[in-house]
C-alpha cells in the first residue's frame, strides 16, 4: 500500500500539541499551588484566566483527532494514538480545571488549618511527581513510566486521606477556621482528582503503545 508519510507527520504534530498542552497544564498546576500556599491572589487570577487557553487547545486537539479519524481511517497503532490523544486531552483539560479550583481557593483567602501544611504539600508534591512521570511517558512513549504513574495513584489516595484526616481533626479541635478547613478539604479533593487524571494518562499511554486496556489497580482488563 502507498506510504502514509504525510499522515504520520500529522500524527507526530498531534503528539507535539498534546505534549505542549501538558506543559501548559503543568504550569497552571505549579501556579495554583504557589498561589494557594502564598495566598497570592494576582497569581490565582492569572491561573484562572489562563484556563481559557487550555480549554481552547483541548478543543482544537479534539477537532484535529476527529478530522484524522474521519479522513485517514487509521488502524492499529495510528488508531490507538488518535483515540488515546483524544482521551488524554479530556484528562489534561480536567487537570486544568482542578488547578483553577485550587486557585479559586487562594482567591477567597485560603489558609491551611492547624499543622496540616506538611500533609497537604506532601500530597501536592506526590501529584506533581505523578504528572511529571505521565508527561515523560507521553514524550518518550515509555510504558514503564506510564505503569509507574498508574501505580502511584494508590499512594495519592492514602496521602489524601491522611491530609483530610489532619484537617478534620484540626477542625474538631477548633484549631482552624471552618472556612479554611473547607477550602483545604476542597484543595485536597482537587489534588486527589489530579492524581486520578495523571493515572488515567498513564493508562492511556499503555493503551496507545501496547493496545492493552488497564482496569482498576493497573491490571489488564
Amino acid at each position: 500500500m502507498e506510504s502514509r508519510a504525510h499522515f504520520h507527520a500529522e500524527l507526530d504534530a498531534l503528539k507535539g500539541r498534546v505534549i505542549a498542552l501538558s506543559v501548559l497544564v503543568e504550569t497552571a498546576r505549579q501556579g495554583a499551588v504557589a498561589a494557594y500556599r502564598q495566598n497570592d491572589q494576582t497569581l490565582a487570577r492569572q491561573i484562572i484566566e489562563g484556563d481559557k487557553a487550555i480549554n481552547q487547545q483541548a478543543c482544537d486537539i479534539d477537532e484535529a483527532c476527529l478530522k484524522l479519524l474521519a479522513l485517514e481511517q487509521p488502524v492499529a497503532l495510528d488508531l490507538r494514538r488518535i483515540v488515546g490523544y483524544a482521551r488524554a486531552v479530556i484528562n489534561l483539560e480536567r487537570l486544568g480545571d482542578e488547578a483553577v479550583n485550587i486557585a479559586e481557593g487562594a482567591l477567597v483567602g485560603a489558609g491551611l488549618p492547624g499543622d496540616c501544611d506538611g500533609a497537604l504539600m506532601e500530597l501536592s508534591d506526590h501529584v506533581a511527581g505523578m504528572l511529571a512521570l505521565a508527561s515523560r511517558s507521553f514524550v518518550e512513549d515509555d510504558v514503564d513510566a506510564a505503569m509507574d504513574v498508574c501505580r502511584l495513584d494508590e499512594r495519592a489516595r492514602e496521602l489524601a486521606v491522611a491530609a483530610m484526616r489532619c484537617i478534620t481533626e484540626a477542625l474538631s479541635r477548633c484549631q482552624a477556621a471552618p472556612e479554611d478547613g473547607v477550602r483545604a478539604i476542597l484543595a485536597c479533593r482537587s489534588f486527589e482528582r489530579m492524581a486520578g487524571h495523571a493515572a488515567n494518562l498513564g493508562e492511556i499511554l499503555v493503551f496507545i503503545v501496547k493496545g492493552v486496556i488497564l482496569s482498576q489497580k493497573c491490571q489488564p482488563r
Binding site: M1, E2, S3, R4, F7, H8, P74, V75, A76, L77, D78, L79, R80, K210, G211, V212
Partner: peptide
C-alpha cells in the same frame, strides 16, 4: 486492525 501482535503487521496496516 487494532492491536496486531506482530510489528511487521502493524507497520504494514499503518502504511
Amino acid at each position: 486492525f487494532t492491536r496486531p501482535a506482530n510489528q511487521q503487521t502493524e507497520d504494514y496496516v499503518t502504511g
